[in-house]
């Protein structure tokens, strides 16, 4: 069953068509990896899926509902979360605060309730425990009081991922989650992703160039070339596509 569908998505920047009629289905509870050369429209596509861009043409459906052009915060409330290719942390907030602010439905974020500490404090304590447990599970508890801008590139990628997990999520859209992350942590991130999809039924749509790692965990692969879907299917079938071999994979030297 498909949790997310795009139908003939077109996105233009001036005369340039970054997406030229993209039709794609993302299967519920599976890990789908979106691959393609630089400039093929991968990030533009996920920007259209997550409300950052409004497509010029086409429809985005989530669980059957039309969500085309819906604002990012509304999509987050219905279970769609995302990370960025270039990490976008709240730089002058600590790692701990980055996680805390990412939790949804916080009583203390209501201006009137914010004045009465006793109203929001119990929830704040619960969220504190949750965020500390998350930091601990990735062995970065010691970084909790660091300001986000003090983190390395890899740590920032991890922070982006942990931020998603502060609120219930059904569809995670990750833009190069293991770019610039060392292989051990990259594998840990992907194995966590895989476990979450299998145990909790969370769906992942992941843009990734590090195919040596991503292909081990992918259920489905989708190749985007020049703003169009070239092929879609199991990792093996997609990687054997001749045109993809010629335009992308021949340069990647992938071990199949």
């Amino acid at each position: 069953m498909e949790i997310l569908e795009t139908i003939d998505i077109v996105k233009k920047f001036g005369e340039f068509r970054a997406l030229n009629g993209v039709t794609l289905g993302v299967e519920k509870g599976k890990v789908t990896v979106l691959i393609g050369p630089n400039g093929s429209g991968k990030t533009t596509l996920i920007n259209c899926l997550t409300g950052v861009y409004r497509p010029d043409e086409g429809t985005v459906r989530y669980k059957g509902d039309d969500i085309t052009g819906k604002a990012p915060h509304k999509l987050r409330k219905i279970g769609i979360a995302r990370t960025f290719q270039i990490p976008a942390p709240f730089k002058k907030l600590t790692v701990f605060e980055n996680l805390m602010v990412s939790a949804g439905n916080q009583l203390g974020e209501d201006i009137l309730k914010a004045l009465a500490r006793r109203i929001w404090l119990p929830q704040e304590e619960e969220l504190t425990e949750k965020s500390l447990a998350l930091l601990k599970s990735f062995d970065v508890e010691g970084k909790r009081n660091n300001l986000a801008y003090e983190l390395s590139g890899g740590q920032l990628k991890l922070l982006e991922l942990l931020r998603l997990l502060m609120e219930d999520v059904e569809l995670c859209v990750l833009d190069e989650p293991v770019g610039s992350i060392h292989p051990v942590l990259a594998n840990k991130i992907f194995s966590t992703v895989k476990a979450m999809s299998e145990k909790e039924g969370i769906t992942f749509l992941i843009v990734e160039h590090r195919l040596d790692i991503a292909m081990r965990y992918a259920d489905n692969v989708c190749a985007l070339v020049e703003g169009k879907i070239l092929c879609h299917g199991s990792p093996k079938s997609v990687l054997e596509n001749e045109e993809l071999q010629r335009t992308y994979l021949s340069l990647k030297n992938v071990r199949k």
């Binding site: 990012p72 915060h73 979360a81 960025f84 709240f90 730089k91 907030l93 602010v101 009583l107 609120e167």
Partner: peptide, 19 residues
Amino acid sequence: PFGRLLRSIREDELTAKTV
């Protein structure tokens, strides 16, 4: 938490929207 929310918007509004 309201103050924390304000500071997050100051730091990166798009990220705040996506959370």
